[in-house]
Nucleic acid binder design. Sequence first.
DNA 1: AGAGTTAATGAAAGCGCTTTCAAAAGTATG
DNA 2: CATACTTTTGAAAGCGCTTTCATTAACTCT
Lengths: 345, 345
Amino acid sequence: MNTSIVRRPKPRATISDVARLAGVSISTVSRVINDTAPVSEDVEQRVRQAAEMLSYTPHAAARNLAVRKTYMIGLLLPELGNNFFAPLLRGVENAVRPTEYQLLVHASLRSLEDAPWRRSSIGEHNADGMLVFVNSTDEEELLRNYQREFPMVLLFFSGPRSANIPHIGFDNASGLRQVVEHLVTVHGRRQIAFLRGPVGNFDSDEREMAFCQTLERLGVAWRPELIVRGHYTSVGGESAIQALLDRGIAFDAVFTGDDEAATGVMAALRRANLRIPEDVAMIGFDDLPFAGYLNPPLTTIQAPVERAGFLAATKLLSILAGEIPEIATRLPVELVIRQSCGCRR
Amino acid sequence: MNTSIVRRPKPRATISDVARLAGVSISTVSRVINDTAPVSEDVEQRVRQAAEMLSYTPHAAARNLAVRKTYMIGLLLPELGNNFFAPLLRGVENAVRPTEYQLLVHASLRSLEDAPWRRSSIGEHNADGMLVFVNSTDEEELLRNYQREFPMVLLFFSGPRSANIPHIGFDNASGLRQVVEHLVTVHGRRQIAFLRGPVGNFDSDEREMAFCQTLERLGVAWRPELIVRGHYTSVGGESAIQALLDRGIAFDAVFTGDDEAATGVMAALRRANLRIPEDVAMIGFDDLPFAGYLNPPLTTIQAPVERAGFLAATKLLSILAGEIPEIATRLPVELVIRQSCGCRR
DNA sequence: AGAGTTAATGAAAGCGCTTTCAAAAGTATG
DNA sequence: CATACTTTTGAAAGCGCTTTCATTAACTCT
């Protein structure tokens, strides 16, 4: 194997090369490239031609250094596993594309061995602002960046109380209200299992609270043993429900924190010979693309993930443009009724 | 609304600030930060302390400019819609994380209004190398970058014949062979509809070829009207099959280019009161997470998407390290037999 | 025709860092 | 104690660009 023969790509044309070829100064080249000052007709032509011939493209780092901007937006995520991610990123991209900014994605299962100054590079240096997904960083760093007035928008959590950082999330309370009311009022279920996400997940916490409150409001007692922890994954859902089944805890409905977990729950229930929705009704969250194709088609809360991504990026862009946006945005969610809850077509 | 009061974040500490505070020169600071030359014990201490106090972090653009490297890997994708994307990106990230590189994601439904020098910035300037997803750019640009010896790895296509750029893809031929043989040999199907992806999609073209060849080898005539075009989406699959149905073209099996389309096909078949697999057997491609939870569970080709992402990134990193990797890598795929093909548990 | 403007251009500084080169300080050697 | 090395440090150049400021050229008016 041919190790470490460092083969640098051919040197690129610089602004000086263009200037020389066009017979002008580099200032002039800069001006025609950026259209920052009037330049005479023929000089402009010459410069453009020279640039074309050398297939010149400005060197980003140099430009960034000079203007003290990176034209980059950081996107900080925990691991990129879930299906949530595709529509979210799509939304972000759609907002960013028409601008001069680019997207720097950073999945941050932060390795602790990293040098401290390397770890958070995205937040502090390689970007002009950043979009922070829930659970992708700690409060301390968030606070540090906040104090430096580093532009940020938070996704699906609101950040430290003391900070007041703009954020975007779903209206979890309303969603839960819809779910619980539907299950209790329409289908008469009273023993609803709630398969929540991991501890510390902001949305999950909110939902759990709303779950219990709505139940109480409807005069149904909620039982702690029916609130179980999953992983927002298929196997997570499967094993959580299996555990409930094994412990002999009765329930007549299950609400899962996301659709992916719902597939696992379905598998577990089927294995236990429980019919959906007759024996146990099911409702999911997210309305992922396949939800309607499950068996039975999954009733679920539709959450506008792509829109959330789009709005978050838009918000950040507006901050970068010097505007002062609203701090909190809650996106409405809506119950999509299919058949897993017991409704007929 | 408070428009365009440009509020720059507070100025950060620079290397000179640290140097001043520590009472040394900036060269020395640079040396301790990067550990590029021996520095006496106490000076090192002083510098580290000063850096800590000012919470100094080097400015990436400046460093990049000086070392003529961006430490960034570009990832060029078409739109980020599909579910394919999450595992792919996960693989890429896993390969990139332990290194000093970062990931610059660029979804390139290139808008034609962009200035020509802006359009391709990722390829030429903001990254040290790039991962190019199929259909995310045109041959011309690929060739330009190739001639400049810009490090690239192609994902799921092999690029222009003349270029010889390293690439990673699936072993489509083998996959198709498995599918067709299974359908023909095990289940005796002879009228297999092939729902392929968009025209110009490299994988789709390869698969179509293998599809026809295998059929011929098995002595089954293939009919052009059974090869239909979809979109790698659920609705795309649905309408394609619906069209077949409407035109009264008979088939006893359908192979879809991906699992997402398969969900649509299932819907269309069900609507036509055709039973799966009795009336028409089905096989998908990709083995997306939900495939096993469809009704009936989908027999499909499992493609190691995450691994492909990981390997592609690894390959690019090795190029950046000066090694010369293999040009072509084909990842094996495997038929996962569930029930939509007609097999029993 | 000369003074006063205006438009187009270039020279040069500076963005924050790395890195080469030389100087200074310390150590070993004859 | 002078000489020859080492080791540690600083000065300064340069990476490729933007931008300010000064200069020159070209007009416009009286």
